[in-house]
Every structure is written in structure tokens, then in C-alpha cells.
């Protein structure tokens, strides 16, 4: 590479950069004028933009720009506009018997769509995006088994006040005692075998017979003498195929020994009455609603 010897290339009448590589010299062709003009226009535009629009980052925010534009404000306006459009439907929803919503297809569609969005925001963390819940205390909302009832009114009640949610005075409460302090290990095992027999699972018939009396003495008050549970008490049906905490002998033994205490938060106060109604309607349409 040679020193900077800028000269004029005779073939093109253009100045060279003065660099030379193995005899090859580089032309210093000037930028096309249209390109330069466009470039200067973009600079001017950028300056104008920073004056009018939010641009320069400051410590907590950015310079607002004299137009005062804010994307958050725009979202707020769009939300307000959407709420305004939905206001008549919301009002109708709030002022009707929730059970009669199925007779109004327009309202049902509106509530289901809105309820789906609410469900994904507030419920899916525990119940799953597909509402299938999870073994270990998160009820599956798709099936036909309901601890506290599966009618629209029941679901609305559960959503509003929660279950075992101490901050809400109207919350529904059920508490199974931890029988580990009350019964012997062997008695608990007999109970487990009896409970297995209730749902026609594989069990030790002799132990199950021994467990019958224990069940009648200790469990039937809430779960019923036939073990079918009581929705008013939130006592689960022990004869069906659905187990919130698992239906295998070990899980049942754990449940009897230590009891369970699942909490559903109350959404009254957090969500508007209409939104709770929408979420209840959405859950009701998932296939298990009664």
C-alpha cells in the first residue's frame, strides 16, 4: 500500500483515494447527489422529530416532545374507547340473572370472549391455560365434578368470594381434620382401603371391611354415608374417577393423615362484577357446566 497520493484516473476523470493494492487503485467516486440530499433530509427530519416526539432518554423517562405523545396514553384511550363500545353489553350483563345468559346468544358470545381473556389473565396460573388444572390441588374445570357446585350461580359465588380465603368474610370454608393425630396408622390404612373400594379400585377387601365403621364414624358427616360427598360442604365425591390430590393409596393416605387445605382467592373487589360474571360464564361453557 502506497502513501496517500491522490491523483486523477484518466479513464473516468475521477479522483482516486490514493490507496493502491498490487497495482489496483480505488476510485473516490463521490456520493450521488440525490443520495446525499436524502441523507441530509433524514438528519433534518430526525431533529424535527426529537422536538415534536418523545426522544432523548432522561433518568426516569424521556423528553416528552412538544406534541406530548405517549404510547401508554394511546393504549389508555383505545381501552377507554373499547370499554365505551362494550358498555351497553356490560350493563345488560350486570343487570340480568346470570343463569339466563344462555338465552341471549349475543351476550353469551360477548361474555365468553371477555371471560376467556380474564381467565387467561387471572385463572390460568393455577388452573392452566386449557383449564385442565393439575393434580395436587388445582381443580380441572373441564370435567363434570364440582366441589362447590357447577351451576353459573355456584361458579360466580366461588369466583367472588373464593374458597378458604380468610380475607373475605363470605368465603366458603371446609376443613378436613388431619387424622394423623386422631387415628392409628393401621386404622388409616383400613380407611384408605375402604375409600378405594368406594371408587371400585383395587383394594384389600378385609381391610376395607374394617374401614367401613371408621368411615361412618369419622368421614360420613361430610362425605356422606355413601361417600358421594356434599357440595354444600365442599366435600368431594369419593366414588367417582376424579381425584384432586390423586386417587392412589399413597395419596389418599396422605390426604387422610395430613388433610388438605387448598385456597382459591376471592376476586370480588379485584375484578368488577361484570368481569366475574364473564369469567363464570366462560368456565361454565368449558364442558362441565351444570
Amino acid at each position: 500500500m502506497a502513501d496517500n497520493k491522490r491523483e486523477i484516473d484518466t479513464a473516468t476523470n475521477t479522483e482516486t483515494t490514493g490507496h493502491e493494492w498490487d497495482g489496483i487503485r480505488e476510485l473516490d467516486t463521490p456520493m450521488p447527489r440525490w443520495w446525499l440530499i436524502t441523507f441530509y433530509i433524514t438528519i433534518v427530519w430526525a431533529i424535527i422529530y426529537t422536538i415534536f416526539m418523545p426522544a432523548w432518554p432522561m433518568i426516569n423517562s424521556a423528553t416528552p416532545g412538544i406534541l406530548g405523545y405517549s404510547s401508554r396514553e394511546e393504549v389508555a384511550q383505545e381501552l377507554a374507547a373499547a370499554n365505551e363500545v362494550n358498555a351497553p353489553l356490560d350493563e345488560r350483563l350486570a343487570n340480568m340473572e346470570i343463569a339466563s345468559v344462555v338465552e341471549d346468544p349475543e351476550l353469551l358470545r360477548f361474555a365468553t370472549a371477555g371471560g376467556g381473556a380474564i381467565f387467561r389473565n387471572y385463572c390460568s396460573q393455577c388452573h392452566g391455560a386449557g383449564a385442565a388444572g393439575a393434580v395436587g390441588g388445582y381443580p380441572n374445570l373441564l370435567d363434570d365434578d364440582w366441589l362447590w357446585g357447577g351451576t353459573l350461580t355456584d361458579i360466580q359465588q366461588t369466583l367472588t368470594h373464593g374458597i378458604r380465603y380468610e380475607e373475605d368474610p363470605d368465603t366458603r370454608y371446609s376443613q378436613m381434620p388431619a387424622f394423623g393425630d386422631i387415628l392409628e396408622e393401621e386404622e388409616i390404612n383400613s380407611l384408605v382401603q375402604y375409600v378405594l373400594s368406594l371408587s371400585n379400585q383395587e383394594h384389600d377387601a378385609e381391610a376395607a371391611t374394617a374401614g367401613t365403621e371408621l368411615f361412618m364414624d369419622n368421614c360420613s358427616v361430610c362425605h356422606g354415608e355413601d361417600g358421594r360427598g356434599m357440595q354444600d360442604q365442599g366435600a368431594p365425591n369419593l366414588t367417582d374417577s376424579i381425584w384432586l390430590y390423586g386417587g392412589d393409596p399413597e395419596s389418599i393416605a396422605n390426604t387422610i393423615h395430613d388433610s388438605r387445605f387448598g385456597i382459591m382467592p376471592a376476586f370480588g373487589g379485584r375484578l368488577s362484577d361484570e368481569d366475574i360474571r364473564k369469567a363464570a360464564i366462560y368456565v361454565h361453557t368449558l364442558g362441565g357446566g351444570q
Binding site: A129, G130, A132, D143, D144, D145, D240, S241, I242, G287
Partner: peptide, 18 residues
């Protein structure tokens, strides 16, 4: 086919797909 969840077991033990 709805795949979340793939199926639902109902209380009588029957299996439902959506």
C-alpha cells in the same frame, strides 16, 4: 383437536375429547 388438555376424564370414568 383441542390439545390443552388432550382429554378429560369425567366422574363416571368416561373420557372426553374436544
Amino acid at each position: 383437536p383441542v390439545r390443552n388438555p388432550v382429554n378429560v376424564v369425567l366422574s363416571d370414568g368416561s373420557v372426553r375429547n374436544a
